[in-house]
Design a binder for these strands. Structure first.
Lengths: 92, 92
DNA sequence: TATACATTTAGATAAATATCTAAATAAGGA
DNA sequence: TCCTTATTTAGATATTTATCTAAATGTATA
C-alpha cells in the first residue's frame, strides 16, 4: 500500500484518477488534459499501474487505462482506522 | 489537501499517525519508537503539522503531539468520491 | 544562575522524483 | 513493405526529500 500512498502524493496523478473516474481513456487522451509531455504522463500512468490504482489494456494502436478501485478501498480502510481511535476498544 | 497527501506518502509519518491514534504523545516518546534520529522525527512532525494532520502543544519541557482528524476526513472524502463513478449521475 | 533535559533549527549530503528531448517499439493502413 | 500514429523506454537534469551531526532554543530545577 506504500506505493499507492506515494502514487497519490502527486497532483497530476490524482487528476488522472479523477479523469478515469468518469470513464476509461487511452494514454493520448489522458495526456491531452495536461500541459506536460506525453512521456511524463506515461511515467505517471506507469506509477499508478505499479500501485494497482489503474489497469491498462491494449486496444489496437491505443492503450486503454481504467481505474482500479480495490487499492483505493484499502487506502480508505487505513484512513478510516486512523479516524477511529483504538479499533479494539469496543464492539457494540 | 496536497500537503496532506504528500505527508501521508511517507511510511514513518503514517506510523506516527497510527501511534497518535492510540494516544497523544510528546516528541521524545514518538522518536523512541523509531530508529532514526530525533531531528529527523522532528522534521516529520513538522510536515504532519503543516499538513494539518497533527497539532502540537507545549507542556513544560515537552511538546505534546495530537492527531487532528479534520484533514484525514477531507482526504477520505476525496477517496470516496473516486470510488463513486460520477457523483452527479443520480440523486436517489 | 548554572546545569540538565527536550526539542527544534541549521547546514550538509545522498537518494528519489518529475520533467524533458530523442529514440525505440508496436499496430494499422496504403 | 513503407509510412503514420500511439505509446513507451532511455538517458539527462533540476528539484525535492529524508537523513545525519552539530548547534541553538526553551524549560525545569538544584
Amino acid at each position: 500500500m506504500n506505493e499507492a500512498f506515494k502514487a497519490l502524493a502527486d497532483p497530476t496523478r490524482r487528476e488522472i484518477l479523477q479523469l478515469l473516474r468518469e470513464k476509461s481513456m487511452n494514454a493520448g487522451d489522458i495526456a491531452d488534459h495536461f500541459k506536460i509531455s506525453k512521456p511524463s504522463i506515461s511515467h505517471h500512468l506507469n506509477l499508478l499501474k505499479q500501485a494497482g490504482l489503474v489497469m491498462d489494456e491494449r486496444q489496437g494502436q491505443h492503450i486503454l487505462y481504467t481505474l482500479h478501485t480495490t487499492v483505493v478501498e484499502d487506502v480508505m480502510g487505513w484512513m478510516f482506522n486512523i479516524l477511529n481511535k483504538k479499533d479494539k476498544e469496543e464492539s457494540s
